[in-house]
Amino acid sequence: MDSNVTGNIATIGYGLATLGPGVGLGIMIGQTQAATARQPEVSGQLFRNMIIGAV
């Protein structure tokens, strides 16, 4: 394979590698929003925990 084809395959691999974290963050943020809707009085604490979890 020449280097151009190898580079294109690597680019596709990097793109696919971003799917896992993207799905994980989407689930985490969605669950935080659902918990905030159920108990709005703890929204600040939930937001803080979500940010810590994302880091």
Results as ranks from 00 to 15, higher is better:
Met50Ser: 10
Val55Gly: 14
Arg48Tyr: 14
Asp2Phe: 10
Asn49Phe: 12
Ala34Met: 08
Met50Cys: 08
Val55Asp: 13
Ala17Gln: 10
Gly44Lys: 05
Met50Gln: 03
Gly24Met: 10
Arg38Gln: 09
Gly26Trp: 10
Asn8Cys: 07
Asp2Ser: 05
Asn49Ala: 15
Tyr14Ala: 07
Thr18Cys: 01
Gly30Pro: 09
Asn8Gln: 15
Pro40Gln: 01
Ile27Ala: 03
Thr11Ser: 04
Met1Trp: 14
Met1Gly: 14
Ile9Lys: 07
Met50His: 02
Ala54Leu: 15
Ile52Ala: 14
Ala17Arg: 05
Gly22Val: 08
Ile29Thr: 06
Val23Gly: 12
Ala37Trp: 11
Ile51Asn: 08
Val42Gly: 00
Phe47Gly: 09
Ala10Glu: 02
Gly22Ser: 03
Leu19Met: 11
Ala35Pro: 08
Ala54Asp: 13
Gly44Gln: 13
Pro21His: 01
Ala17Asp: 03
Ala17Pro: 00
Arg48Glu: 15
Gln31Ala: 13
Met28Gly: 05
Ala54Pro: 15
Ala17His: 02
Leu16Trp: 01
Ile52Lys: 15
Tyr14Asn: 11
Gly30Lys: 06
Met28Phe: 07
Thr18Ile: 07
Ile52Arg: 13
Thr36Trp: 09
Ile12Asp: 00
Leu16Lys: 01
Leu19Thr: 01
Ile29Gly: 07
Ser43Gln: 10
Tyr14Leu: 15
Gln33Asp: 11
Val55Cys: 13
Asn4His: 04
Gly24Ser: 11
Ala35Thr: 05
Ala37His: 03
Met28Ile: 10
